[in-house]
């Protein structure tokens, strides 16, 4: 392996570039099926096009499960703690939705990370659990997520959900322009159970919306007990 590295460094660089390109392609292309299983492609739909349920006291209606529990593979435990041992990172997780501009709402503090509560949960059978937070804040300066770019493929990430510890292994760390990022892929609710950890990066242009890029960590969920 050492021999390979020294004599074919150029080839390795190209391979890395190609891999990076493939991962970016996965990020940037709307919902197509990439080679690394980053998304499962269309359809995004749950396969439950119509259901009926009783509304409150409504009698005589066919009663099924209400919408919030309609996915039988959705254990309700929500993420509450994010740890990345190699970075010494440990952040409480807060449930967040969307802000008044339709973007994902994030905790004000850079020492907290938000979980997109309309998306998948760590113990769901499928879909991306999305955790996102500020890389820095005006009040506090750089936060723990500033270290994300130093993550390497294979690094373990742990998310506590309820009483369970769910472990993920990093599969890619990508910086991508906010103008090009494929948000439906980042927030996908289908495909393999995985973690998407998102923050900001790149150039900071205060007059142009601040950070120009997002940093996206993709990590695959490992079987429980590993």
């Amino acid at each position: 392996m050492r021999h390979l590295r020294t004599t074919t460094g150029r080839a390795v660089t190209i391979a890395v570039a190609a891999l990076s390109g493939a991962l970016l392609t996965a990020l940037l292309l709307p919902d197509r099926t990439p080679s690394d299983g980053f998304t499962a492609g269309r359809p995004e739909a749950t396969g439950l096009p119509g259901e009926v349920l009783a509304a409150g006291q409504a009698e005589g209606s066919t009663t099924r499960q209400p919408p919030t529990t309609r996915r039988p593979d959705s254990p309700t435990a929500v993420p509450r703690l994010l740890t990345i041992p190699r970075l010494g990172l440990r952040m409480p997780v807060l449930a967040r939705g969307v802000d008044d501009r339709g973007a994902m709402a994030l905790p004000d503090s850079g020492s907290r990370v938000g979980w997109y509560r309309f998306g998948s949960r760590p113990l769901d059978r499928s879909g991306a659990t999305v955790l996102a937070g500020h890389v820095d804040t005006r009040a506090e300066g750089a936060g723990p997520l500033a270290g994300l770019a130093a993550l390497r493929v294979g690094d373990l990430i742990e998310v506590r959900a309820g009483r369970r510890a769910v472990t993920y292994a990093t599969t890619s760390v990508t910086r991508v322009s906010k103008a090009l990022i494929d948000l439906p892929a980042v927030f996908s609710r289908v495909g393999p159970a995985r973690l998407h950890l998102v923050t900001c990066g790149g150039a900071y242009l205060p007059e142009d919306g601040g950070y120009q890029d997002n940093v996206v960590v993709v990590a695959q969920r490992l079987p429980s007990g590993s």
């Binding site: 349920l53 890389v135 820095d136």
Partner: peptide, 29 residues
Amino acid sequence: LAVQTISGMHSAPSGVPGGTGGQAAGEAD
């Protein structure tokens, strides 16, 4: 009342505005 639900029309948020300070921009990333 009878209730029908049709799922699968959700959209992604319009972005992830992940930084407000700019201090991290200077760091080697």
